[in-house]
Every structure is written in C-alpha cells, then in structure tokens.
Amino acid sequence: MNYLAHFHLSHGKQGLMIGALLGDVVKGPLKGVYPSEWEQGIQLHRRIDAYTDSHPLVRACQARFPKKFRRFSGIMLDVAFDHFLSQHWQQFHPQALPQFNAEVYSLLDNTRWPATAQAHAQRIAKHDLLNHYQEWDFILEVIASIGRRLRVANPLAEADQILPQHYQYMAQAFTEFYPQLQQFASAEKLTMGEDLALNNKRVE
C-alpha cells in the first residue's frame, strides 16, 4: 500500500502514523533506535505490506499485467489503490478526506524526522499528494515519477498504456480487498497495544 492507505490504517496514534512513513525508509531489524510507538508503526507498515503482497486478490490483479510489468506491478497497484481509497473514502473512514489529509500534513510538519525520512515528509506535504490521489492522471504521473527515481531499468513510464485497461478490475478488487486489510491492521494494532502495555508493566 502507498502513503494514504498506510496513514489511514495506522490512524489513531501519532506514533504509529509516524512509523507508517518511516516504514518506507527504515530497513533491517529494529533495535530501539526510535521511540517504541514509532517502531510499532514501522512493524505495522511491514506487516501490511506482507499481507497485501500475498493476498489472492492482489496477485490476481498483478497476473493481468503484461509480463514485463509483473516485477513492478506491486508499485503500480500500491499507488492505484490509494486512488481507489480516495474515491471510496467515506466507506472506510467517518472523517472527511480533506480533514484527514490536513491532520496528516500537520503531523508531517510538526515532527522532527530522521534525515532519511525528511525528504519524503516534505514531498508529501509540498505537492499535496494525499488530496491529488483522487485524480487518475496524477496517479499515472506518480508511477512514472517513481520509475524515473528507480536505479534499475523499468517500464513504469508506460504504465499509462496498461493501467487504464484494467481500471474497473482493479477498482473491484480494491473494494473487496481493503475491508479485509482493515480488519488485519486493526487486529495487529490491538496486539501491538497489548504487547506495549505488558512491556510497560514489566518496566514498572
């Protein structure tokens, strides 16, 4: 999943939302370098990605793309799914999308980010990415931009020739998949909260 979905699925605790962004840049084992709730957010990000990558509905979408796109299909779907989340936002969250996004931008602006994440946080707010995800043409531009930043040769500049053909299929897959992902993320957050409470009790 991409930025909007990760912020949405971690919503409720600022530390988890910070970790949702850090999950894109922090790699390897977590060793207590960051606050515990940030690291929980990173773990949640990783588990959401693993759940998404292995889900049959997501794999069925990927299988529809031409072979040369398959290696990068996860990137394309992550961004496309943020578009569908924007389009169907009221089904998944009681708060209006512009208000939610404003809350996220405030968090991005008022957090002292590690150097590795500072550029990500600034880019999201500067370009108002979360609100623009509602625009399909913008989604195609984002995917092409990711392709230009990758260090390996890739066909993402040609995604505009492929993704529109599968728009309805992806939209239907998303509406079936996302409620399952919400349930998964909620269960993970509950487990993490119980673990944190237990650890704090031990410290006391």
Rank of each mutant, 00 (worst) to 15 (best):
R202K: 14
S54L: 12
Q99H: 09
H8M: 10
F92L: 02
P155V: 12
K189I: 08
P164E: 08
E135L: 08
Y105K: 08
H83T: 10
Q183E: 13
I143G: 08
W38C: 01
G41R: 08
R71C: 01
F65M: 14
D109H: 12
V58Q: 08
D78R: 10
W89C: 07
M76S: 11
Y178A: 02
A171W: 00
F7Y: 15
A60F: 10
S145M: 13
D53C: 05
L30R: 02
M192E: 03
V25C: 02
I18K: 11
A159E: 01
L22N: 02
K201Q: 14
F69L: 01
F65Q: 05
D53A: 13
L140C: 08
E204T: 11
N131F: 02
V25P: 00
C61T: 09
L198D: 06
A50Q: 13
D78N: 11
R151C: 00
I42C: 01
Q122D: 06
P66I: 07
P29T: 06
D137L: 06
L129H: 15
Q165Y: 04
Q62Y: 11
A50D: 09
N154R: 11
H83Y: 12
G12F: 10
I18A: 00
R112A: 12
L4I: 06
G147F: 06
H120Q: 11
K31F: 05
Q118L: 10
N110K: 14
Q90M: 02
G32K: 04
L22C: 03
H127D: 09
A187Y: 01
E188I: 02
D128Q: 15
Y51L: 08
L22F: 04
K27I: 03
A117I: 03
L129N: 05
R112F: 04
E141F: 10
G15I: 09
L140M: 12
S73K: 05
S36D: 11
